[in-house]
Computed example of a mutant assay.
Amino acid sequence: MATFDLELVSPEKLLLSRPVEMAIIPAAEGDMGILPGHSPMIVALKGGVIEVRGGGQPAERLFVAGGFAEITPTRVTVLADEATPVDQLSRAAAAVRVKEAEAAYEAAANDLPEVREKAMDRLLSARTMADVAGAA
Protein backbone atom coordinates (compact mmCIF):
# COMPACT_ATOMS: atom_id res chain seq x y z
CA MET A 1 0.00 0.00 0.00
CA ALA A 2 1.14 3.58 -0.67
CA THR A 3 2.63 5.59 2.17
CA PHE A 4 3.60 9.14 3.06
CA ASP A 5 6.17 10.44 5.55
CA LEU A 6 4.81 11.57 8.91
CA GLU A 7 6.78 13.64 11.39
CA LEU A 8 5.39 14.57 14.79
CA VAL A 9 7.44 17.17 16.63
CA SER A 10 6.85 18.66 20.07
CA PRO A 11 8.96 21.36 21.75
CA GLU A 12 10.73 18.61 23.72
CA LYS A 13 11.58 16.13 20.96
CA LEU A 14 10.83 14.40 17.69
CA LEU A 15 8.21 11.79 18.64
CA LEU A 16 7.59 10.12 15.32
CA SER A 17 9.25 10.08 11.91
CA ARG A 18 8.36 7.27 9.54
CA PRO A 19 6.32 6.26 6.51
CA VAL A 20 2.64 5.59 7.32
CA GLU A 21 -0.41 4.54 5.31
CA MET A 22 -2.92 6.82 7.06
CA ALA A 23 -3.15 9.40 9.82
CA ILE A 24 -6.18 10.90 11.52
CA ILE A 25 -5.51 14.31 13.06
CA PRO A 26 -7.68 16.52 15.32
CA ALA A 27 -7.93 19.57 13.05
CA ALA A 28 -9.62 22.64 14.54
CA GLU A 29 -12.46 22.21 12.02
CA GLY A 30 -12.91 18.51 12.89
CA ASP A 31 -11.03 15.24 12.67
CA MET A 32 -9.28 14.81 9.36
CA GLY A 33 -8.13 11.61 7.68
CA ILE A 34 -4.97 11.87 5.59
CA LEU A 35 -3.90 9.41 2.91
CA PRO A 36 -1.03 9.57 0.38
CA GLY A 37 -1.68 12.20 -2.30
CA HIS A 38 -3.68 14.50 0.01
CA SER A 39 -4.13 18.09 -1.16
CA PRO A 40 -1.59 20.53 0.29
CA MET A 41 -2.78 22.60 3.25
CA ILE A 42 -1.86 23.93 6.66
CA VAL A 43 -4.35 23.32 9.47
CA ALA A 44 -4.58 24.32 13.11
CA LEU A 45 -4.95 21.46 15.59
CA LYS A 46 -7.20 21.28 18.62
CA GLY A 47 -6.53 19.10 21.64
CA GLY A 48 -7.14 15.52 20.63
CA VAL A 49 -5.68 12.24 19.47
CA ILE A 50 -3.56 11.61 16.39
CA GLU A 51 -4.05 8.07 15.15
CA VAL A 52 -1.38 6.57 12.92
CA ARG A 53 -1.95 3.45 10.83
CA GLY A 54 0.42 1.47 8.69
CA GLY A 55 2.34 -1.72 8.14
CA GLY A 56 -0.50 -3.96 9.30
CA GLN A 57 0.19 -2.96 12.91
CA PRO A 58 -2.37 -1.74 15.45
CA ALA A 59 -3.03 1.99 15.31
CA GLU A 60 -0.60 4.14 17.27
CA ARG A 61 -2.34 6.90 19.25
CA LEU A 62 -0.78 10.13 20.52
CA PHE A 63 -2.49 12.95 22.43
CA VAL A 64 -1.70 16.48 21.23
CA ALA A 65 -2.72 19.62 23.12
CA GLY A 66 -2.87 21.72 19.94
CA GLY A 67 -0.52 22.98 17.26
CA PHE A 68 -0.36 22.96 13.46
CA ALA A 69 -0.02 20.41 10.68
CA GLU A 70 1.48 21.00 7.24
CA ILE A 71 0.14 18.53 4.71
CA THR A 72 1.58 17.81 1.26
CA PRO A 73 0.85 14.86 -1.07
CA THR A 74 3.96 13.01 0.20
CA ARG A 75 4.52 14.34 3.73
CA VAL A 76 2.74 15.49 6.88
CA THR A 77 4.58 17.48 9.52
CA VAL A 78 2.80 18.02 12.84
CA LEU A 79 4.14 20.75 15.11
CA ALA A 80 2.42 20.00 18.41
CA ASP A 81 2.29 22.31 21.42
CA GLU A 82 2.55 19.16 23.51
CA ALA A 83 2.41 15.48 22.54
CA THR A 84 2.25 12.29 24.60
CA PRO A 85 1.56 8.67 23.65
CA VAL A 86 -1.97 7.86 24.90
CA ASP A 87 -0.74 4.87 26.91
CA GLN A 88 1.54 7.21 28.91
CA LEU A 89 -1.22 9.64 29.97
CA SER A 90 -2.01 9.84 33.66
CA ARG A 91 -5.62 10.10 34.83
CA ALA A 92 -4.53 12.08 37.90
CA ALA A 93 -2.48 14.56 35.85
CA ALA A 94 -5.38 14.98 33.42
CA ALA A 95 -7.81 15.66 36.30
CA VAL A 96 -5.47 18.33 37.67
CA ARG A 97 -5.17 19.91 34.23
CA VAL A 98 -8.98 20.03 33.90
CA LYS A 99 -9.35 21.77 37.27
CA GLU A 100 -6.66 24.32 36.39
CA ALA A 101 -8.24 24.99 32.98
CA GLU A 102 -11.71 25.39 34.54
CA ALA A 103 -10.32 27.92 37.01
CA ALA A 104 -8.55 29.82 34.23
CA TYR A 105 -11.74 29.91 32.16
CA GLU A 106 -13.78 31.21 35.09
CA ALA A 107 -11.12 33.85 35.79
CA ALA A 108 -11.36 35.00 32.16
CA ALA A 109 -15.12 35.68 32.40
CA ASN A 110 -14.64 39.47 32.12
CA ASP A 111 -11.67 39.42 29.75
CA LEU A 112 -11.59 40.08 26.01
CA PRO A 113 -13.27 37.47 23.79
CA GLU A 114 -9.87 36.32 22.49
CA VAL A 115 -8.69 35.58 26.03
CA ARG A 116 -11.89 33.68 26.84
CA GLU A 117 -11.60 31.71 23.60
CA LYS A 118 -8.03 30.69 24.38
CA ALA A 119 -9.08 29.65 27.90
CA MET A 120 -11.95 27.60 26.43
CA ASP A 121 -9.59 25.88 23.97
CA ARG A 122 -7.32 24.96 26.88
CA LEU A 123 -10.28 23.61 28.85
CA LEU A 124 -11.56 21.52 25.93
CA SER A 125 -8.06 20.13 25.37
CA ALA A 126 -7.78 19.20 29.06
CA ARG A 127 -11.17 17.49 29.00
CA THR A 128 -10.17 15.52 25.92
CA MET A 129 -6.95 14.49 27.65
CA ALA A 130 -8.95 13.30 30.67
CA ASP A 131 -11.33 11.32 28.45
CA VAL A 132 -8.48 9.65 26.57
CA ALA A 133 -6.49 8.95 29.76
CA GLY A 134 -9.57 7.38 31.32
CA ALA A 135 -10.03 5.09 28.33
CA ALA A 136 -6.36 4.04 28.21
Rank of each mutant, 00 (worst) to 15 (best):
E51D: 07
A92M: 04
F4W: 03
G47K: 06
E7A: 12
G55I: 08
E82V: 06
V115K: 12
V64M: 07
E100K: 03
V9T: 11
L62I: 15
M1W: 05
G47M: 09
I42H: 00
A23W: 07
T128D: 11
A80C: 12
G55N: 01
E12Y: 01
A101Y: 05
A104G: 06
L123I: 10
S125W: 06
T72G: 05
L15Q: 03
A92Q: 14
V20M: 02
P58I: 04
V96R: 13
R18Y: 00
D131T: 13
G47R: 06
T84P: 01
E82H: 13
G48M: 12
M41S: 11
E51N: 02
A130K: 12
M129H: 02
T3K: 02
A107Q: 14
K46R: 15
L6M: 09
A109H: 11
P73V: 10
L62H: 10
F68P: 03
L124N: 14
P26S: 06
E51Q: 14
P58V: 05
L6R: 01
V52L: 12
A92D: 15
R116D: 05
R75C: 10
M1A: 13
L16A: 03
E114L: 15
A27M: 07
G47P: 12
L123H: 08
S125P: 09
H38S: 10
S10A: 14
A95G: 10
R91D: 06
E114D: 11
G48F: 06
L6S: 01
E114H: 02
L16H: 14
A93H: 09
A69P: 12
R53M: 12
E12F: 02
L45A: 04
A94F: 13
E51K: 14
V9H: 02
D31I: 02
L62N: 02
M1N: 05
R91I: 14
A44V: 07
D5Y: 00
V98H: 01
P11H: 04
I50W: 08
V9A: 04
V96I: 15
A94L: 10
T3I: 00
V9N: 01
A44L: 11
L62E: 03
M129Q: 15
S10F: 07
A94Y: 13
A103M: 04
T84H: 09
Y105A: 14
A69M: 06
R97Q: 15
L6Q: 01
R116Y: 07
A83Q: 11
P19C: 00
T3R: 02
R53I: 02
V9I: 15
T72V: 07
V64L: 11
T74I: 06
L14A: 09
G66R: 03
L62D: 00
A27F: 08
L16M: 10
H38G: 08
L112Q: 11
V49H: 04
A109N: 01
V9F: 00
I50E: 08
L16T: 02
G55Y: 04
F68R: 07
A93R: 12
G55M: 07
P73S: 04
E51G: 05
A109Y: 08
G37E: 09
K118V: 10
G48P: 11
S125E: 04
A119D: 10
M41R: 03
S125A: 15
T74N: 13
I34T: 05
A103N: 06
L35V: 04
E82K: 08
G67L: 10
G48Q: 10
L124E: 12
